[in-house]
Nucleic acid binder design. Structure first.
Length: 236
DNA sequence: CCATTAAACACCC
DNA sequence: GGGTGTTTAATGG
């Protein structure tokens, strides 16, 4: 378990700052707790902070006009989010919902903007961070359009291990099958079936309250059988 | 038809 | 109490 200062000092962007700059960021930042099930950000709220996850899990969700909710992606230990909204001086366009009791490192908007205006190395970090997230979202669209359910679960799980976005993820993914289903855009029992398929393929192990990833490259390149069709009903 | 899902249920951590 | 495995009926391509 880490504290606020450790999270800031071991972040991927800390090394882009001079010791003096970093010390000032540490001084201006603060910690916030969000209980499981509570919102950190809501669509329409003004964005006042850049958030880093000290410990916990947050998901980004949007709502359709009739109230249906869809989950885009999750952020876990060591991940940072909100920079895009802060850069635009905008309001949140997605909800940030804690699915575990979570502790957040909050870098005030004024601090974040000062770094953007004064530190070229920090901007380099932001570029690669945004680029990584862009690549992640492009991948998610690709999975959604081209892959069947089993492969979608495999790739969505694998995407949680992107080193630039999820720096401190172990091999155990602490997400219920319900939550994996939400991330992969399918029902719980379909996610359950996909997970068993992947377990049979030796890529992961299903455990209580989560899964252990055994073969990350295998998950990342999983294509399933015949574009994701299962139940080998191909004439025996 | 076939795949998927919501709802409901029975275990088990 | 919540996560998991399973069944059943309803839905939609």
């Amino acid at each position: 378990m880490q504290n606020l200062q450790e999270t800031l000092k071991t972040s991927l962007w800390a090394e882009t700052l001079t010791p003096k700059e970093l010390a000032q960021v540490c001084d201006e930042s603060y910690e916030m707790h969000v209980a499981a099930g509570a919102h950190l950000t809501r669509i329409g709220d003004a964005a006042n902070s850049w958030y880093g996850v000290i410990e916990g899990v947050l998901i980004m969700t949007v709502c359709s006009p009739d109230g249906k909710e869809s989950t885009f992606t999750g952020v876990t230990n060591g991940g940072w989010f909100g920079e895009g909204t802060l850069l635009k001086n905008d309001h949140w366009r997605y909800n940030g919902l804690a699915v575990r009791d979570s502790r957040l490192a909050c870098v005030p908007r004024s601090t974040f903007k000062r770094l953007v205006q004064t530190s070229l190395p920090f901007n380099h970090f932001l570029l690669s961070h945004l680029n990584a997230r862009l690549g992640l979202f492009i991948s998610l669209i690709e999975y959604d359009r081209l892959l069947g359910p089993d492969a979608r679960v495999a790739r969505c799980l694998a995407s949680l291990f992107h080193p630039d976005i999820y720096p401190r993820t172990g091999s155990f993914v602490e997400l219920s099958q319900e939550e994996i289903g939400q991330l992969s855009a399918m029902s719980r029992q379909r996610a359950n079936e996909a997970l068993h398929q992947l377990e049979r393929a030796g890529l992961l192990r299903i455990e209580f309250g989560g899964v252990s990833v055994l073969d990350l490259p295998g998950l990342r390149s999983y294509h399933g059988v015949a574009q994701g069709k299962r139940r080998g009903s191909a004439k025996s």
